[in-house]
Design a protein around this nucleic acid. Sequence first.
RNA 1: GCGUGGGUGGCGGAGCGGUCAAUCGCACCUGACUGUAAAUCAGGCGGCUAUAUGCCUACGGGGGUUCGAAUCCCUCCCCACGCA
Length: 395
Amino acid sequence: MENFQIKNTYKKARTGILKTSHGNIKTPNLAIVATHGQIKLLNKTEHKRANPDFIISNTFHLFVNNKVKEIKNAGGLHKYFDFKKPIMTDSGGFQVFSLGWGKVHGIGKIKKSFAINKEKSDLKRQVEISENGVNFLFNKKQYELTPEKSIKIQKKMGADIIFVFDECTSPFHSYTYNKKAIALTHRWAIRCLEEFNKKRDVTNFDQMLFGIVQGGIYEELRKKSSKFIGSLPFGGFGIGGSFGEKQMKQILNWSLSGLPDNKPRHLLGIGKISDIFIAVKQGIDLFDCVIPTREARHGVLYTKMGKLAIKKGIFSKDKKLIEKGCGCWVCQNKITRQEIHHLFKKDKLDSSRIKAQRLAIIHNIYFFKNLFIEIREAIFKKRLDKLEKEYCNYF
RNA sequence: GCGUGGGUGGCGGAGCGGUCAAUCGCACCUGACUGUAAAUCAGGCGGCUAUAUGCCUACGGGGGUUCGAAUCCCUCCCCACGCA
């Protein structure tokens, strides 16, 4: 019955295998974000070329785009999108933050400065949180998600791994606010579990439900949340929240303190390379992040020697491959930097730019897959610190 | 040769007497992007500098009108189209 096995460890880091109904995930590993069910901009062929190990889609966005019924009728996400590997769905909890306080405070997941964006702080908040659940005002329409509703939707869509509906707070929130918020998130976690344990929906396979630890930047709250969430019978655990750049290690330490060792831990939304190393070294097994795909769309290509901002003029006559020896479809097909550069330029048609973006996405996904292969290998060979140093020269 | 329309910053292209170092695109340069509201955003882009309600040189060349000209007049050069 155990669907997570730890294989090797190095200090706190570990490699393992997470079994799902759609195959195994070698950990540590990173889910590619496919919010609407597919990786943005990629068609089926390109999806196969990119070949992500597993993906994560989003309950909120599929819900507001009216996709849930269609997906259910098709027999779930795997069939609807013809993706045979593991899929996760996020619960919509992050949108409580990103469309709510995140928008009001003018920040994203990682706080970079101490100042709230004044212009944005005048915005009326478009997310209302109550005991029962959350009301969202999105694209001028009202939507409601509750713990039960989020789980029901996620069961209908049938991802292999689903998440509890939580409240992700802003790094600007006080201790008092966070204390209330984790209490709510904890009550919601129980409601999610109860809903999850009701009869199966369309899925004819097992799903895993992951709980989520919150607590902001506060040691006491993180530890408390970790202990509480860790005591519940979840298949795995997510570490959620929005915090400052330099607090990663400490917050992870607190957040993992109460979780059982033998269950997988997923750090939600993290994906900067330096952060990945920090997290793996704390014992994180799973990640998901928009960085590989979003930065690709914005013209950033990853190589072991750092990022290439491929739209810059210096690449207009660069006949080299993105990265020598890279096994991705783009590099294997000898598509050069200058070709991608020219496809990216704005005076070209949209279709040309999209082609460039697709190539960039395929390459970056490969890069991150490979990064995690190296991380797993480095844990096995007890040389993770060395690998981190090699990468951190450039990232 | 005649006629007409033009010559503006790397390019395209606004401006048609003061608020113009000159709208806007493109190109170029710098940044940003961490459970996707963003196939996106922010800043710079004549020279100098303490980076600014500062100085200098600028709208094909020269001259003129005017308190003031990229904008009006004369002249020269060049370009496009049309007619010879």
